[in-house]
Computed example of a mutant assay.
Amino acid sequence: MLVIQLMCVSLLCGHVISSASGRHSLWALASYISGSTMFPEFTVVLMLDDIQVAYFDSEVDGIRRTAATEVEVDLLQDKVFVLRDMWKSMRKRMNLAKLHLNLTTGVHVLQRLAGCEVMDGQPVLIMNNAVNGQDVDGVMFNMTHFALFRRPNWVIHWDDMEWAFIQTLYSNIYLPACAQTLKILLNREKRLVMRRVRPHVHFLMKQVVGGAQLTCLATDFYPRHINLTLLRNGRAIDEEQLTGGAVLPNGNGLYQVRKTLTVSVEELKLKHNYTCVASHLSLDNRLQVSWRAEFSRSHKIPIISVPASVALTAGLLVVLLWWRRRRSKGIAMETQEQQVEPEL
């Protein structure tokens, strides 16, 4: 259960704005664990858009660079105080949540997505908290507006003095520190953030009982935003008929996405023309790959009824037993002939 909750941090990446939208962002994906585990009590992954740039945990108490980036760690060390403050804040919030939600024994996880993005030339600070995978509260702040979101009857309430202190803290420390770090990282990591890698698009066909599965695969592209559409005879296929569609990391800093359509034997006989269309920032025009159903024996998938399959299996067993019995008799006769001594 703990591993699943820790993996939920990666799902928060869906909020991260990539360079495909023309906006850039810096995020801290933090986890605080209450209870005995093999993991550090507090961990943070720093992300520039969708690129992991640094890592911090409570055991090392320092920022480490990830393999995906060339940023100098010294540039980030003066911001360690923000992460330490986040550590203390999440410890306090977890203790309050345990009391409010009656969380006693066992392992419990508080997750936080905190960071800033530049929208219309202005930095905006965003923070969301979740306890054991359920959202509890969040904050959105720019230089002119401060909004607080929280679940009904949530334990944390601020009086006027605390509210004024929080707004001062966010406007004078957190937001400027995040915006400055974002600017530095964008300058240093421009090569990674602004790169454009063309997708490779393929059509895959797999025979299944009752027809075939057609899969449109786009892989090894960056940035992660892509539009993938399947056409039948030039007309877009309804998304409800397709499976897949989630953009996933490839492990090499690039991404992949696939969509699958199940086609019946009857539809294969009609020999429709299927087209996979990809639209991406790296492409001047749409990339298209087509596949046409050629109904032949290779597409015909025999379907054997249950009684027929049982009879066929029984017949094969009878033949196998008969063959083994005959073979054993032949071996026995050869042995007897070898034991007979010739008469003198």
Rank of each mutant, 00 (worst) to 15 (best):
D50V: 09
R325Q: 15
E117T: 03
Q180Y: 15
H15A: 14
T219A: 04
W154F: 12
C216H: 03
S264I: 06
V60P: 01
L125D: 01
T219G: 02
M140E: 14
C8G: 07
F295C: 07
Q213D: 10
V265E: 14
L96E: 12
K79P: 00
T219F: 06
A177M: 10
H157W: 11
E162H: 02
I184A: 08
L2Q: 05
W163Q: 15
V277A: 08
T229E: 04
H100D: 12
W291R: 04
K183D: 13
L169R: 11
M143H: 12
D284G: 15
S309A: 14
A54H: 00
D160T: 11
I301H: 07
A212Y: 04
L76G: 00
Y274G: 01
A54R: 01
C13K: 15
M7I: 06
L12Q: 11
R224N: 09
A147I: 08
D220C: 03
L248W: 00
V139R: 09
L46E: 00
N142G: 09
Q167H: 09
L29D: 03
G234K: 04
M127A: 15
Y170F: 15
A30L: 05
W323A: 15
V80G: 04
T43A: 11
F221D: 00
S290C: 02
D220Y: 05
R224P: 06
F221Y: 02
G62S: 12
G211H: 01
R325W: 11
A314N: 11
T260M: 10
P199V: 06
E72K: 15
S171T: 10
L281R: 04
H15E: 12
N128S: 14
H299N: 13
R232S: 05
W163K: 10
W154H: 05
E337F: 12
V45K: 07
F81L: 13
D74N: 10
W291H: 07
C13T: 13
P302M: 08
D160M: 08
V155G: 03
I126K: 11
V139D: 01
M7E: 13
R191A: 13
L254F: 07
N172A: 08
L2R: 07
S282P: 01
H200V: 08
V71I: 07
S290Q: 09
H280Q: 00
G121E: 00
L242Q: 03
V124C: 09
H280I: 02
E341M: 13
I63Y: 02
L76T: 03
D238H: 10
E343V: 15
T66Y: 01
A278P: 00
V118P: 00
F295P: 10
L344R: 13
K98H: 03
L204A: 12
K92Y: 14
A97G: 10
N132C: 14
R84L: 09
D238L: 08
A293M: 08
T260P: 07
M1S: 13
Q338M: 15
H15M: 08
N252F: 05
V53A: 04
H280K: 01
W322Q: 13
L204Y: 12
H272S: 12
P223N: 05
R196M: 12
P199K: 09
R326V: 07
M333K: 15
Q256M: 11
V60N: 11
A114M: 07
F221R: 03
A20E: 05
V3Y: 14
I63K: 05
E267P: 06
R91A: 14
L2S: 04
F221K: 00
H299V: 04
